[in-house]
């Protein structure tokens, strides 16, 4: 019984992956290809944030700094003549080192204090990027060269996004089942107790942050190469940090699939529903005007009623269905 469920799940997953892999082949250059890339990117960011915020329980409001560092590392190096593909791992490494730089001191802070510090780090980094014109081009941003065959280029990037997402998912799954992951969970539950059990909390947290930073940095690098133009307001903007918090929390913080679910829902809502307008009582409301209200309310409701997000909700629903089935099976059928 259990075995078939498991095989079923794996088959479903494979089916989805094959479907996703085929999108650009069938609909090459369509909008779905673009949407697909963005979704993969957001899934990566969401999973990466979850490594620190979910697994280790350290809520970061400044994760966008890694995205920005990744984007700028790639752009600056590419413009200075380093081969484009080589800049991708370098972007990840730069982001991870930046994570070490401020994580090493800031992760000593506990819970909410760490969160507050990350807001400060995020904003300070954005201001630096704005003002270090010689390096970053200031607010004018950096424009990257347009490649020869843009369609082929974007086609390629769809798969880069796809594999980045897959990689992040595998890393996240591997951590969940590892000693390292258990250590992070212990830190989330009770840091002092974890320390007492021999978990070096600080180095665990730093390692999680650096890993997360690496993934986000690579994401930022792909973003820059895909959009071909970056500026501090976009790649260091607080709203990106907010998105990175909202997606995993809506989906299910600390779970494996929650961040994925959250990111997919987030992009779909953003693209499909938010562009609609609603006609009520003679006024036209554009739904885009309410997006923060919706996300804010979701955040509040989730924390109040289902801290494990949509995944938690789904599990709850699944369990009650099963209970109902069992109850039904117990009742002898009268003929």
């Amino acid at each position: 019984m259990k075995g078939t469920v498991r095989t079923g799940r794996i088959l479903l997953l494979l089916g989805v992956l094959i479907f996703l892999a085929l999108i650009p082949v069938v609909g090459r250059g369509t909008y779905y290809q673009h949407l697909g890339f963005l979704t993969f990117l957001f899934i990566t960011l969401s999973i990466a944030w979850n490594l620190v915020g979910g697994y280790a329980g350290q809520i970061s409001f400044g994760h966008v700094v890694f995205f920005g560092i990744g984007a700028y590392t790639t752009s600056i190096l590419w413009l200075r003549g380093i081969p484009q593909l080589l800049t991708i791992p370098l972007a990840g490494v730069a982001a991870a080192l930046y994570g070490l730089l401020w994580g090493w001191p800031c992760l000593r802070l506990r819970g909410p204090y760490f969160s507050i510090a990350t807001i400060g780090v995020g904003e300070a980094t954005r201001l630096l990027a704005l003002n270090l014109e010689n390096l970053t081009g200031g607010a004018g941003g950096l424009t990257l060269p347009t490649p020869e065959d843009i369609r082929l280029y974007l086609f390629g990037f769809y798969y880069m996004g796809f594999f980045l997402m897959l990689g992040s998912l595998l890393i996240s799954a591997a951590i969940r089942n590892s000693r390292f992951g258990l250590g992070l969970f212990a830190i989330r539950m009770d840091e002092d107790a974890a320390e007492a059990l021999g978990v070096n909390a600080l180095s665990y947290k730093i390692l999680a942050l650096m890993l997360s930073a690496f993934l986000v940095g690579v994401g930022g690098s792909l973003y820059a190469q895909y959009i071909l133009y970056i500026d501090p307001g976009t790649v260091f903007g607080f709203s990106m940090s907010v998105n990175m918090i909202l997606m995993p929390i809506i989906g299910g913080i600390g779970t494996l699939w929650g961040p994925v679910l959250g990111a997919v829902i987030f992009t779909v809502i953003q693209d499909r529903i938010m562009t609609l307008s609603l006609n009520l009582w003679g006024f036209t409301f554009k739904l885009v005007q309410f997006h923060l209200l919706v996300y804010g309310a979701l955040l509040v409701l989730i924390i109040l009623f289902e801290p494990r997000g949509l995944v938690g909700l789904a599990e709850r629903a699944y369990r009650s269905v099963q209970r109902w089935r069992q109850a039904k099976a117990m009742v002898p059928t009268t003929g």
Binding site: V242, I245, F290, L292, L293, Y295, G296, A297, L299, I303
Partner: peptide, 12 residues
Amino acid sequence: LLLFGVWLMMQN
């Protein structure tokens, strides 16, 4: 986080 959600709602 909850009060952060409230802040987002207030902004909107």
